[in-house]
Design a binder for these strands. Structure first.
Length: 352
DNA sequence: AATACGTGGGA
DNA sequence: TTCCCAAGTAT
């Protein structure tokens, strides 16, 4: 017997230490024949794309309480789903979530396809998510490779090629370890290992089931892997947001276009966000006051400084853009974070 | 192939 | 403060 990582050691560790997650069937129950609900597996996997378990939990509970089935989600109004997703980020996921739910409900009789290939034909499901759903929900022996798996493979095999160039090699390594028996538990086990022991910084090698097999640990380089090609610096952009409040307390809001940044989300009308001075673009004629404080926010690929203009407008004022939302219908939690920052700064100067 | 696309927490 | 990081996908 060789000294490489043994999937059986990992499964034994998982059976004893699997995290208790609201979308997961515990390993003991799974062995007893319990199957996870593919709808819940799909929903959790989409929410978990580039997102931490800690951030996802509350959203998952809220979504499943509101919409217990894919048919229920498919029937939900777009604006409600986008509002419930607000704050979780990567809003194309929410738009694709709805598209996918509607395809599954209308074209697949409410049942998710069971193969990676068929799953990948659905909106918002790529190579990772397709493999993950097939493995976790249907126990297909798919190779599931996310950021955790990449890190674990890079360390166990001491692969020093930087990402993303190392990806094919890491996938081959993951494939070689994927077992025919319990592939769904195996996939979740590698990810749990990466999330709780083989962490990006300061991995807890002393309690790792693959301690004896880890080439990077033997070489003492585990904390330096995986290597990554340096990222580009984020440019600084500037913009103006306009917060208008009508005499009856209604707020002037707009739903952003479906494409691009914050697509489909509710927000304050404003200028474009540019690297030089923004061009003013007030959405309604008013006596605008500069708040004197800007909202700062960092997106994936740029930093933003957003100047805030506020105004009270008369009841009969006609907006050029956006629509007035009655105070009773406005939920700040429906706003993406940058827009909520603007609201939090502006609200005190627009009291009624 | 390279880029666009969010957010919050930790060091 | 600043940077890095987290269960990626679409184009």
């Amino acid at each position: 017997m060789g000294d490489g990582p043994d999937p059986a050691d990992l499964l034994a560790w998982y059976d004893a230490h699997a995290r208790d997650l609201p979308w997961r069937v515990a390993p003991a129950a799974r062995l007893a024949g319990a199957r996870p609900d593919p709808y819940r597996v799909w929903l959790s996997e989409v929410m978990l794309q580039q997102t931490t378990v800690a951030a996802v939990r509350a959203y998952f509970e809220r979504f499943t309480a509101l919409w217990p089935t894919v048919e229920a989600l498919a029937a939900a109004p777009d604006a409600q789903v986008m509002g419930e997703w607000a704050g979780l980020g990567y809003y194309a996921r929410a738009r694709n979530l709805l598209k996918c739910a509607r395809v599954v409900a209308e074209d697949h009789g409410g049942r998710f396809p069971e193969t990676r290939e068929a799953l990948m034909a659905l909106p918002g499901i790529g190579p990772y998510t397709g493999a993950a759903i097939a493995a976790i929900a249907f126990d297909a022996p798919e190779v599931v490779v996310d950021g955790n798996v990449e890190r674990v493979m890079a360390r166990v095999h001491d692969i020093r090629t930087p990402l993303p160039a190392a990806k094919p090699e890491l996938v081959r390594a993951a494939a070689a370890l994927t077992p025919e028996r319990r592939p769904g538990c195996h996939a979740q086990a590698v990810m749990d290992l990466g999330a709780t022991i083989c962490t990006p910084r300061a991995p807890a090698c002393g309690i790792c089931p693959w301690w004896g097999a880890c080439a990077a640990r033997k070489a003492g380089v585990q904390a330096e892997l995986p290597r990554k090609t340096p990222k580009k610096p984020k440019p600084l952009r500037f913009g103006i947001a306009y917060v208008a409040r009508r005499a009856d307390g209604a707020w002037l809001l707009e739903t952003r276009p479906d494409k691009g940044l914050l697509g489909g989300m509710l927000g304050w009308p404003g200028s474009d966000w540019t690297e030089s001075a923004p061009i003013p673009a007030p959405p309604i004629e008013a006596d605008w006051t500069d708040l004197g404080e800007e909202a700062r926010h960092t997106f994936t690929h740029f930093h933003l400084r957003l100047a805030i203009k506020v105004a009270h407008v008369p009841q009969d004022a006609a907006p050029l853009r956006g629509a007035f939302t009655p105070a009773t219908a406005f939920r700040p939690s429906d706003l993406p974070t940058v827009m909520r920052k603007v609201f939090d700064l502006a609200r005190s100067s627009l009291r009624h």
